[in-house]
Amino acid sequence: MTDHCLRLLRQHRRLAELAAFPFNFDLDRAADGHAEPVRLASGGALETVAGCDTGGTYFVCADGSLLYADSEGSAGIIGSSADEALEIVIGLPGWRDYVHLTPADGEQAILARVAEVEDEIREYHGIDAERAELRAALGLPDRSPVELVGMLHTALLRTEPDFLLLNAAEGCAHDLLDPHPRPPLWESVRHEVPGDPAAEPLSTWITLAVDQGLTELARVALIRRLDEIFMDQSALLRPGSRKELDLSPLRWLAGEFERLGDRQQAERAQHLYTALRK
Rank of each mutant, 00 (worst) to 15 (best):
H174G: 00
N167D: 15
A235V: 13
R224A: 10
P141I: 11
G150Y: 01
L148A: 13
S188T: 10
P141D: 09
Q212F: 00
L222V: 08
P161M: 03
R219G: 01
R224P: 07
H174P: 03
P184S: 03
D178R: 06
V146A: 15
L185N: 06
R143M: 14
G195S: 09
L156Y: 04
L166D: 02
E200T: 04
P197I: 04
L148G: 04
A198E: 13
L226T: 00
H174K: 07
R190F: 07
A173W: 05
S144L: 05
L236P: 15
V193S: 03
N167M: 04
V149A: 01
D175W: 11
V146T: 13
A235I: 10
D196A: 12
F230I: 02
R182C: 10
D142V: 15
G195H: 02
T154M: 02
A199P: 03
F163T: 11
L176P: 01
H180F: 10
E200V: 00
G171Q: 00
E160N: 05
L156A: 06
F163V: 09
L185W: 14
E200D: 03
G150P: 04
E192G: 01
Q233T: 14
L138V: 08
A209C: 00
R190M: 06
S144N: 10
G213N: 13
L152S: 04
R182V: 06
R143Y: 14
P141L: 13
D175E: 13
L138R: 06
E216Q: 14
V193H: 01
G150K: 00
S234K: 15
V146G: 00
P161T: 02
R158H: 15
D232R: 14
G213P: 09
V220I: 05
C172M: 07
E192N: 05
L236I: 03
A168L: 09
S188H: 12
E192L: 12
E192S: 10
Q233S: 15
S188I: 07
D142G: 09
L237W: 12
D211L: 10
D175C: 13
L214T: 00
P141G: 11
N167V: 02
V146Y: 14
P161C: 06
L237A: 09
A235S: 09
E160C: 12
I223C: 01
L166P: 05
L236T: 06
L236W: 07
S234V: 03
V220C: 11
A218I: 11
G213V: 09
P145C: 11
D196F: 09
A169D: 13
E216V: 03
A221V: 10
F163P: 06
L237H: 12
L217Q: 14
T204L: 09
P201D: 07
M151R: 15
A218K: 07
L166T: 07
S203L: 04
A155V: 05
R225G: 00
P183L: 01
M151G: 00
T207K: 10
M151S: 14
W186E: 11
N167K: 04
E187W: 03
L214Y: 05
L156R: 07
E147W: 13
S234H: 12
E160M: 04
E200R: 14
P183N: 00
L164V: 12
R190H: 11
T204K: 10
P197M: 03
R182S: 06
D175T: 11
T215D: 08
L156D: 00
H153Y: 15
R224M: 02
P197S: 09
